[in-house]
Write a protein that binds this DNA or RNA. Sequence first.
DNA 1: AGCACGCCGACT
DNA 2: GTCGGCGTGCTC
Length: 815
Amino acid sequence: MKFAQIILPLNLQGTFTYSVPEAITDLLLPGMRVLVPFGGKKIYTGIVFRTHDEAQDAFVPKEIISMLDDSPILPQEQLEFWAWLSDYYLCNMGEIYRLAFPGSLKLESETYLKLKPNVVVDFENLDVHEMYLIQALEIRQLINLSEIEAFIPKKEIIKTINSLIDLQYIEVDEKITEKYKAKEVAYVRIKDPEAVRAQLPEILLQLKRSPKQQELFMMILQMHTENPETQIRKSHLLDDGNFAHSQLKSLVEKDLVEEYFLQVDRLESYEGETEQLEELTEEQKRARNEIVAAFEEGKNVLLHGVTSSGKTHLYLENIEETVAAGLNVLLLLPEIALTKQTAVRLEKKYGQALGFYHQKLSDFERVEVWRRIRNNEIKVLVGTRNALFLPFRNLGLIVVDEEHDTAYRPREVAPYFNARDSSLILAEFYGGRVILGSATPSVESYWLAQNDRLKLVTLSERFGKVSLPQFELIDFKEAQQRKKVSGNFSQHVLDEITENLQQKNQVMILHNRRGYANVVECETCGHVSYCSNCDVIMTYHKFSNELKCHYCGNKSSKPSNCPKCNAENLNTRGVGVEQIHEEVSRLFPDAEVDRMDVDSMRRKFAYEKLYEKIESGETDIIVGTQMISKGLDFDHIELVTIPRADHMLYVQDFRAEERAYQLITQVSGRAGRVSGEGKVLIQTYNPQHFIFQLIRENDPREIYTYLLEERKKFNYPPYTKTILIELKHRNEAKADRASQFLGSVLRKYLPPECILGPEKSPVGKINLLYQYQILIKLPRGKFYKIYKNYIKESIEEFEEITAYRSVKRYIYVDF
DNA sequence: AGCACGCCGACT
DNA sequence: GTCGGCGTGCTC
């Protein structure tokens, strides 16, 4: 007898042992999907992690119902990667499985059964449930498991199915692929061009009373006349909002126009000509040679290139070389909105061999990418962090663009992992190489480069030898004393904005705080509104006239009177981006001022619309949160100002200075991309602050030296490895007690200086859950693994206490 | 994670 | 008298 360790899509520790039916013992391989019963009535699609012959005595393993793949859907490298992730990030493989697979590749009780063709059923020897199921299948060809529940008791379902599969009467329907239809796109054409031409006056007369239809008809006719070969996409015709669907429908009904459909690839791959890259500059050539040399040494690369230095160009060169060597490439981007520019260039190069994978794809589209990757049809895949889990073959290169971006390690989705760090491991399993690229590398990556674990390659010139923007610090306190201030802006900044507007330049204003004001306060009694679910003050959003909680999304309308003492004089404190936007609009009444933040971009296509408005030059001033620091590469932005730069430093986070540096540098990179005369004005109460001074001097080496010294001084990463454990419960005392207990267990095993807390989290309550945290700082090197095993043991000990089982537990490794 | 079982309160 | 709340235990 043979056994298999199966990964199930459940948040449970470890794998589960199943026995392998004799018929497939020689066929079953790690990485294949199998159907297994679990618990009383559930059926799951599991993944074979490994097969073995170690007999089991603690329990009787159940048997695998069926094998779903002829060959492993998941390559060995991915299985090793999952195991590594689960071990390193202290999460379960089931969580990874859930995240990694598109829904329809891990069907559960939705799995369909069918009769085997040409079977003769011997009803005499069937029990009543088996008979029901066969009869049901004779009527309907496919039945899924939850439908079977209607006529067979839950506990009997698995037994019934198993016995019928054993008797070779039925089988699991595996043709998942047949369930998706090819996507079709609607096109429009003149139904009978000859006839139309002959009878045009009559037709126009017929359409006299519907001018819109006439206009639309003429437009289609004109398009046809100009180029009879072009296909006219229906959506393009209606997109600009000039015509309504009903008008087109009328034309179709009048038999003048007809609609037809063409199948397109769901992923809308590029179908045009592919083109060659432009030549590299001298500096880029040097960098390229350094990358080649590093790869030959077996080293991965940290590509530190100032904004607009042509990092993408270098990526493309390396991608091309990798593909030419017969290997495949993964290009990771922090968010899908950034794919636009990169994608255009890659499409021209790789056409159909390019794939995309990100959160916005539908399940079918995801499966399609899976299929194409498995068939080795995709040479270059552009995607967000989940693309790490695709079943790559021959992965030769991973490029992680904007590697400093925090989108690579979101705290909100389980399992927690850092896609940038993980990509280094994944590449190792595949024997591939990695390029981490950024204009502002993370302190951690920079440190790795300093310690020879990554090869640092630098691009310090902007493309076309354009100068970097000039930084200027404005002492806001001094400006206030000299009364040269209007609201949040010093006169100097206002003058600069005015001048730029006169020269028809665009201006960007960064203010990284959502809403209008942080606090609405009653002047009489001092009352402020707290979120009812969280331990947080509600932020005032004037645009929607609401108080919003930025942690749980809770909203309430803004009160006009104090809810406590009913006084009318409510005051606001703290400046948000809405207020800056309002102020700038007032100060520059003739300018077109637009706001870009998550709140204003929530509506569909809001981002695309504003993007085009800025691109066309219609917008004069863009006021926004950190959102404006990404992806807005326009030629006419000459001035960037940060009116309240100090905000960024007053965050309780050991990365606050690093983030401020990255944000300021990224946003300043938008200025003077073509002219080379960009300017960045930073208003601050602390112009002496080291980080501002360093940013102004713009010497990266100095900045990283400073940031690293600070990290070293306070024992933060990269000098230590951190693990944050959060415990949450709706009963505060219970959360407190649980964290005290876990803390005491940890202290049993770990040196006391490694453990900070337990203590109440900075935000003590979110979504009605009270949260307590323990921060663990571990030394790097060989003790790390030992200590981490102690942590695992401590958590197991903690889990044995049944009273704390309802306490939610979150672990963030390298948070 | 999901589900069953079992124990307590608030309702037709 | 029952319905359903969630604490507890179990799943190969």
